[in-house]
């Protein structure tokens, strides 16, 4: 029996290009214009400290229609302290050949001592990485969110709606901060959480410009009566 209808075959597009375009197509025109003016392009580095329109990232209290515009972490250079310390700790057992501090122990105890030392280093590095990776600052089209894990057992999530923001201040100073372009942003709000701090984030001027742009857009939406 002949087919009633045969659908035309669609050409297979480059999926990467399609995804990037799809991400940009989801955001409103006004926001797209703001991002272009500030010079923010979607990136693909999931381990980065500054991610614009990150893909495949969400957070537990995110609304269905909410879009993450920026995902920020402390600048990578803030990890230098513990990285250097880790390198020294890894090399420390080699000093035992020069300074035989464990020679009074039987060989089996020395082996276990060295293994326990390296296990401690692994835990130290893992904990520092987790602390950097999961302490994030998120800017969506509706609010600012600060996720803090103070230790392995204490978590604090603060949020402030864009229309409740009263004042935005940024601070950057010192040789390292100027060289690597990172600083602190302080956001004063009218809500229960009076101040949200974004510490040691990259490109603070661009972030402040974005927040100011979002605040203008919220005011515009209020005037036009398009409150979500």
């Amino acid at each position: 029996m002949p087919d009633v209808y045969v659908a035309p075959k669609k050409p297979v597009l480059n999926l990467k290009f399609k995804k990037k375009k799809a991400v940009r197509n989801l955001i409103p025109k006004r926001l797209k214009k703001s991002l272009d003016q500030i010079g923010l392009e979607p990136g693909t580095n999931s381990l980065g400290a500054f991610q614009t329109l990150p893909e495949k990232i969400s957070f537990s209290i995110q609304d269905g229609e909410e879009t993450i515009i920026l995902l920020l972490r402390r600048h990578l250079i803030t990890n230098l302290n513990w990285l250097i310390l880790t390198a020294l700790m890894v090399l420390t057992p080699l000093l035992l050949k020069v300074f035989p501090l464990l020679d009074f122990l039987p060989l089996r105890f020395q082996l276990i001592a060295v293994l326990m030392w390296y296990l401690f280093i692994i835990s130290f590095v893992f904990e520092k990485f987790l602390s950097w990776f999961f302490n994030v600052y998120i800017i969506t089209d509706e609010r600012l969110i600060d996720v803090d894990f103070f230790s392995l057992v204490y978590r604090e999530v603060s949020q402030a709606k864009i229309d409740k923001i009263q004042d935005v201040t940024y601070k950057t100073g010192g040789l390292i901060r100027t060289l690597f372009n990172f600083g602190d942003i302080f956001v004063q709000t009218a809500g229960k959480v009076q101040q949200i701090e974004f510490e040691c984030i990259p490109k603070p001027t661009k972030v402040v410009k974005l927040i100011n742009s979002l605040m203008s857009q919220e005011e515009q939406e209020k005037i036009e009566g398009r409150i979500r």
Partner: peptide, 24 residues
């Protein structure tokens, strides 16, 4: 005691990954 600590780290990672959901 260290095993208990490692177990706690695994539990906390589970909580962290529930808070921020991503590729990694």
């Amino acid at each position: 005691v260290y095993i208990a600590f490692a177990f706690m780290v695994a539990k906390e990672v589970k909580l962290m990954t529930k808070t921020l959901i991503g590729v990694f």
